[in-house]
């Protein structure tokens, strides 16, 4: 793989319904990088990644995804997407394998049934996320963390070059977060590039090698996890209150809000 960036955003704006959320933003992601995208709610993280996926409006600037202009991407499957809310609604029965297999659909013309290779990739993805023994389970019966892994497997069967994950650990209990982190570590070992939107850096310790923090539609930190720890320490020092991102000093029973039930981020005083 060349060292050309897999994602290159130059003074780009994104938004929806004609309303700009992210303005004049520049960011490059290189092959093999595992980037955590942080920021408070409404900071534009989701707007940015949804923009990269073509789900939000690209309102200006230049955006290259795997060397192709955003508007003329020929092979959209190379960006694997793991959505935020678990979209596995229980309106009809569907098995883990059935949901994961839909990730192969964009790879074949509409009239062609699944090939043996499609089936093999589905089984391999189930193995990677540790759900091979639950392939026939109804997804609605799975725990939140298991459902997240179903969505990861669905993205993996598309054989993506880049995985974009929106809050993979949100709303998942501590034990399942550990399993999820293990799955992510396994993916990192395969060399896949990842862009992970998250509130819970602690759950991704040792996985992430670059941190980008956004606020109000702009990037205001971009660097290594060590650099980020220093950066937040300074902020904590400067202000009378703040956050730090060490492993959970607070007991896991403490609830922090809808997206932070396990609260690995301890709050100072």
């Amino acid at each position: 793989m060349s060292a050309d960036p897999v994602i290159s955003v130059r003074s780009a704006s994104f938004g929806y319904a004609g309303h700009t959320v992210v303005a004049d933003l520049s960011l490059e992601v290189r092959p093999g990088e595992v980037v955590a995208l942080l920021g408070p709610n409404g900071s534009g993280k989701s707007t940015l990644v949804r923009g990269l996926l073509g789900l939000n409006e690209h309102l200006g600037g230049e955006v290259l995804v795997l060397g192709e202009r955003l508007s003329r991407r020929s092979d959209r499957t190379r960006l694997g997407y793991v959505p935020q809310r678990h979209t596995l609604s229980g309106s009809v029965r569907s098995t883990v394998r059935e949901v994961v297999a839909t990730g192969r659909l964009p790879h074949r013309p509409w009239w062609r049934p699944a090939s043996r290779r499609d089936a093999e990739l589905v089984e391999a993805a189930l193995d990677t996320v540790g759900l091979a023994d639950r392939a026939k389970a109804d997804v609605a019966t799975l725990s939140g963390g298991q459902q997240r892994r179903v969505l990861i497997a669905r993205a993996l069967v598309g054989e993506p070059s880049v995985l974009i994950m929106d809050e993979p650990t949100a709303g998942v209990d501590a034990a399942s977060q550990e399993v999820l982190a293990e799955v992510l570590r396994r993916l990192v070992a395969t060399g896949v590039t990842m862009l992970v939107v998250t509130h819970e850096l602690a759950a991704l310790r040792g996985i992430v090698d670059r941190i980008v923090e956004m606020d109000a539609g702009h990037i205001h930190f971009d660097g290594t996890p060590e650099g980020y720890a220093e950066h937040t320490a300074q902020i904590v020092h400067a202000a009378s209150h703040g956050h730090h991102h060490d492993p959970p000093p607070a007991p896991p029973e403490i609830l922090r809000g809808p997206y932070d039930p396990v609260a690995p981020v301890g709050e100072e005083r």
Partner: peptide, 22 residues
């Protein structure tokens, strides 16, 4: 019958289907 999986994918998760190019 022919489009069963595609209709299933789109009805189940429209956003992901759109992102993956269906």
């Amino acid at each position: 019958t022919v489009l069963r999986q595609r209709l299933f994918a789109v009805a189940g998760d429209e956003e992901h289907s759109r992102a993956s190019g269906l």
